[in-house]
Write a protein that binds this DNA or RNA. Structure first.
Length: 232
DNA sequence: GCGACAG
DNA sequence: ATCTTGTCGC
């Protein structure tokens, strides 16, 4: 995972080889981009240390994280994972894997079309089973609104990182005091940037937020232990 | 031509 | 993404 760099990428035209429909993908991205709600829109609240909350208030407790690790032997074989952590203890209280063969190729800027289906399945499975641990919030290791193709609309402000003014859609921060290398946080869907930043910091035992870190570690372990191959 | 490009 | 060992420091 990791290694974020939000440089401007050139998408342009390149329908050359693969059986991929670039045009549809771009249209889908533009469509979804319009539906982004970049402000807080949820029923739970953040527990404030020192202050007790109303009993009926729904407090943020279950935070999910997703990731996918690939097989060295067969790069098309992957292990998708969904973990749920208790925000207070930062312990993993749920995990589920899904071994799949990916047929959609990886193209820079279109990662979600390749990886999201598997991850959504894992989430759907929890929801279908009415699992009480179903995450109230999901952390994803991806570009978010810092995506090259979203920058046109949102990220001029991302430059504010360097001191300009205006609305901010993403920010680079040191997640923990000990890490010099920054992590990038952008608004989520139905989560404002400041809220996202608060939650990210709450989940950082190390540089990478625990939900994402655990998803990465565990999916990678799974691939190693099961030595995934063309069988299974 | 070279490096970069969410994985 | 994946490969890869130890090492230094809190």
């Amino acid at each position: 995972m990791e290694e974020q760099s939000h440089e401007q990428g050139s998408i342009e035209t390149s329908p050359s080889s693969s059986s991929v429909d670039h045009k549809t993908w771009i249209e889908t991205q533009d469509f979804l981009k319009k539906k982004l709600i970049a402000e807080d829109d949820f029923t739970w609240r953040l527990a404030v240390t020192g202050r007790s909350m109303e009993k009926e208030e729904e407090v943020l407790k279950y935070v999910g994280g997703v990731d996918i690790s690939y097989s060295k032997e067969d790069p098309s074989m992957a292990c998708g994972i969904l973990v749920v952590l208790d925000l207070q203890t930062l312990q993993v209280v749920y995990e589920d894997f899904s071994i799949v063969t990916l047929h959609v190729p990886y193209l820079p800027g279109f990662l979600a079309f390749r990886e999201a289906p598997v991850l959504l399945e894992l989430l759907e499975k929890m929801k279908t089973n009415a699992n009480p641990l179903y995450p109230q919030l999901l952390m994803v290791d991806g570009n978010g609104t810092l995506h090259p193709r979203a920058k046109e609309d949102y990220a001029q402000d991302f430059v504010t990182l360097k001191g300009c003014s205006g609305r901010i859609w993403g920010v680079a921060v040191r997640s923990t005091g000990g890490s010099l290398k920054p992590i990038f946080i952008s608004v989520g869907h139905r989560i404002a940037l400041d809220t996202a930043i608060r939650i990210v910091k709450m989940t950082c035992k190390f540089r990478v937020p625990e939900p994402i870190r655990q998803a990465d570690i565990r999916s990678r372990d799974y691939v190693r232990k099961h030595q995934m191959r063309m069988s299974k």
